[in-house]
């Protein structure tokens, strides 16, 4: 291995983040800690998607004075993963907020945050 491309580093970090988050989600019993694990998985997926859109030596996809329009095709990174991740982060916040609202609600009714005390909704 003579050189290590930037996007390979971030890609493997993204996968590592997914594994760590999944570990946290599966092992922990506290609901809030499971949600923390979920948001780690979320960040990992975003990192993977942004890494897949990277072009070697690319610059930001903003075509103004500093990037010539003729050479833009070879110089900018892929704008589509950026756009998708942009919306995915906002939706991730929405999902996290709903999950936390349910956690608060569970705590109000059961006065516990442990997932093991919620076995009545298990089939």
């Amino acid at each position: 291995m003579t050189e290590l491309p930037l996007s390979t580093i971030t890609l493997s970090t993204g996968f590592g983040l997914m594994l760590i988050g999944m570990w946290g989600m599966l092992v922990r019993k506290n609901i809030i800690r499971m949600i923390v694990g979920f948001s780690l998985i979320d960040t990992g997926i975003h990192m993977i998607m942004v890494s897949l859109g990277y072009i070697r030596g690319g610059t930001a996809p903003i075509i103004d004075g500093s990037v010539d329009r003729a050479t833009a095709l070879t110089r900018v990174v892929d704008p589509i993963p950026s756009a998708l991740v942009l919306t995915a982060i906002v939706i991730g916040l929405g999902i996290t907020a709903v999950m936390l609202a349910y956690a608060v609600q569970i705590h109000t009714h059961k006065e516990t945050l442990s997932i093991e005390d919620c076995s009545d909704s298990k089939w």
Partner: peptide
Amino acid sequence: VTYVILSAPDVAMTEASIG
């Protein structure tokens, strides 16, 4: 910060403010 390195400043702004 890694999004800035990967030339995706829009995503970096979103992640920093929301994430």
